[in-house]
Design a protein around this nucleic acid. Structure first.
Lengths: 199, 199
DNA sequence: ACAGCCATGTAACTTGTTACATGATTTT
DNA sequence: AAAATCATGTAACAAGTTACATGGCTGT
């Protein structure tokens, strides 16, 4: 939803053509997540399909402009008014990976954590330097600063969590953590109409 | 990739049937992200298509078992060996939203931050309580503890970032932050073969 | 002449997600 | 008898992502 909503919000500022939108998204997010141009046109098609934007005109240079509709403006307003829902959504890839890994027998979770920490540390260092390097002298560098900050605080959080997790698992040895596959309870579920050996 | 890889990893522990996999995923991730059952079967189909698992047999209760293939085991090993890639991937929805919002004219970013902070605070409180409530007495509660911890540290990071961002924007007034749509440079791009007014 | 950018688009595909159909078994 | 749960599956779709085709314009 992020790209879609962002492009729509930018179009809320005024008509744009596809290629232009890429540049707009880019500088407004600190050039952090490069967008494949194709995705812009896909997204525009879908936004148009949903009645949130409409083709306006093609200018003297041949640029195909889109403009936001009333429904689109409402959508943007709703987006800005509603907080981002952490909790319901937001699956943490690393948390899932480590908790699944920890419940698997024969997996050296400490090692998994170790390699993860190495790259997470490097990542945090890189972000620290990037944060220090940004000197805010305009909207674009400010946007960059915000985004780098966000990544930095999350990288720090991740490292804290890795430490905490390592601690927890040290106190709770691996062999005691592994989960067996739940034993099947008999006489349940679908009946044995056909007992077939497949494969 | 998270669900897919997790299910594959669980299958690496031994053959399972679909419904069972849901329960396994559920308890191994602290019952945090409920999985629609249908997704299990979809994912199993796709894993089979990709040669990572194969149908094994149907037992007396009619349960359709899948087992991991050699290719699947390699995939799991690779998954566990490779760190999660923050940086390349990992788009922060909130960071994008706020930096786009901040570069938009006529948007009260302080208000956006305000409503976000309200729910983020509530979220952190709920997580704090949840973290305090978990008493680790087995693999499942440990998994739950790990996941809650992860959400907690990220919620804290988010609040820190919101404060920092609010500060930054206070020092850098909104009117100076808004970005105009980039002016079009003439004599570029597609030629004016047809100057059409569409819509 | 040629490389590289500007610009629009299409086609295919991935993972995730939900709604629905179906039916058996278990519990109340 | 009805409700809840176990269980398998299908169909459709959303959003993101990439590779490719096409062609003009700009700078070397």
């Amino acid at each position: 939803m992020t790209v879609r909503q962002s492009l729509l919000a930018i179009l809320g500022q005024g008509p744009c053509y596809g290629y232009q939108l890429r540049a707009e998204f880019d500088r407004r997010t600190g050039s952090t997540w490069p967008l494949n141009v194709g995705q812009i046109y896909n997204t525009l098609d879908r936004l148009e399909r949903d009645g949130l934007i409409a083709k306006s005109e093609t200018d003297a240079q041949g640029h195909v402009y889109y403009e936001i509709t009333d429904a689109g403006s409402l959508e943007v307003a709703a987006w800005l008014a509603a907080p981002v829902d952490r909790g319901t959504a937001a699956r943490d890839e690393l948390a899932i990976k480590l908790s699944v890994a920890a419940t698997l027998p024969g997996v050296d979770v400490a090692e998994v954590i170790g390699t993860q920490r190495a790259v997470s540390l490097a990542h945090r260092e890189a972000l620290s330097e990037a944060a220090a390097a940004v000197h805010v002298d305009g909207p674009e560098s400010l946007a960059r600063a915000l985004v780098v900050d966000a990544m930095l605080v999350h990288a720090e959080a991740e490292l804290r969590w890795l430490d905490r997790t390592e601690d927890r698992l040290r106190r709770y040895p691996a062999h005691a953590m592994a989960l067996e596959l739940a034993t099947e309870r008999p006489k349940r579920g679908r009946p044995a109409k056909e007992v077939t050996a497949v494969g």
